Simulated scan of single mutants.
Amino acid sequence: MNERLADSHRVFDRVSQEYDAARPHYPEALYLALETLSGIRLAGATVIDVGAGTGISTRGLLDRGARVVAVDRGELMLARLRVRTDCPALLADGNDLPLRAGAADLVTYAQSWHWLDPALSVAEAVRVVGDGGAVAGWWNTVDPGKADWLAANQVRLAESCPGYIGPVLPGWSMPPMAAAMSDAGLSVAETWVDWTRSVPLEDFLTDLRSHSYIASMEGGVATELLARERAELGRVFPDGRLTVPMRVYLVVGRRGRRGAM
């Protein structure tokens, strides 16, 4: 694994408070689509939530009746998860899950799979889900094609942040999890879920600070960048509340029952 991936949990531990405070949730339609594409009803299912962070997806799964085990490499991220939930939380690597074969109905990666080794992580997930189980990954992203102010915001970030990854970059696409699932012999399905987030300006800026391309910057540089964004966005939203068009990309790989593949 390259150095960037190996150290990602340290970057996010530095901004665990901001991540917990301001990262967006996932809409109800995402969880409904997850059930449809996986063929697994969340209520009563055993789910391993890999790269759970502070538990945004973990809480969403728990709220829908799943039995969840959260897994993350970030100690401070997991510490915040443990404050909010009482589900099992393991400090562990998603490339080497400390779980027995067939332990789960579903393995999920919310906003996290791209920080893991593509082949190793999916192979581990396939090992951990039983026959008829599934592996799923999803990512929230802003949708700048639906708002000029948001497109301008993303262009400014791309110009200011050397590590920026996002929808205004030429050739940008979602992480290639579908291909990794297919290579692992899973039956793959994908969908997009559109939704709208209403959020105070300060929370939007706090959310930005939690992204790796800003979290990895020098503190003073990041503070200056966010001050510029506060001024720019404040002119567009003088009441201090943003309406942000969002999209969630969901990919699910199903493991056939014994003898069915």
Rank of each mutant, 00 (worst) to 15 (best):
I40A: 08
A70E: 02
V71Y: 05
L205V: 06
R241V: 11
T54L: 03
D96W: 09
V107H: 00
S210I: 02
D86N: 13
P167C: 04
S8N: 09
G185Q: 08
V248M: 08
M261Q: 10
W192F: 12
R228S: 08
W139H: 04
W149C: 05
E229C: 13
E3D: 08
L150Y: 11
D183K: 10
E18F: 08
G166E: 04
P175E: 13
N95C: 12
V50M: 02
T196I: 08
G163I: 09
D72K: 00
R73G: 01
M181W: 02
S173L: 10
A158G: 15
L225I: 14
P24M: 11
L186Y: 07
G60T: 02
G55W: 01
V221F: 11
S160Q: 11
A184N: 12
A110T: 01
M261W: 11
R209W: 14
Y164S: 12
M261C: 06
G256T: 13
A178R: 04
E232Q: 02
M77R: 07
S216W: 01
G253L: 05
R4Y: 14
A215P: 12
D96N: 04
G240W: 15
V11I: 06
W113H: 09
E18W: 07
V83P: 03
Q154V: 00
G219R: 13
E218A: 10
L201N: 04
A125N: 01
S198I: 15
T206I: 13
G74E: 09
A178S: 11
V68G: 06
R258M: 11
L42C: 03
G102L: 08
R230Q: 12
R247C: 09
V155N: 01
A92K: 13
D183T: 04
R257N: 09
D239E: 14
R64M: 10
T141G: 06
F237Y: 13
D86T: 04
L250E: 04
A184F: 06
D20E: 14
V107N: 01
A119T: 12
A66G: 01
G220H: 13
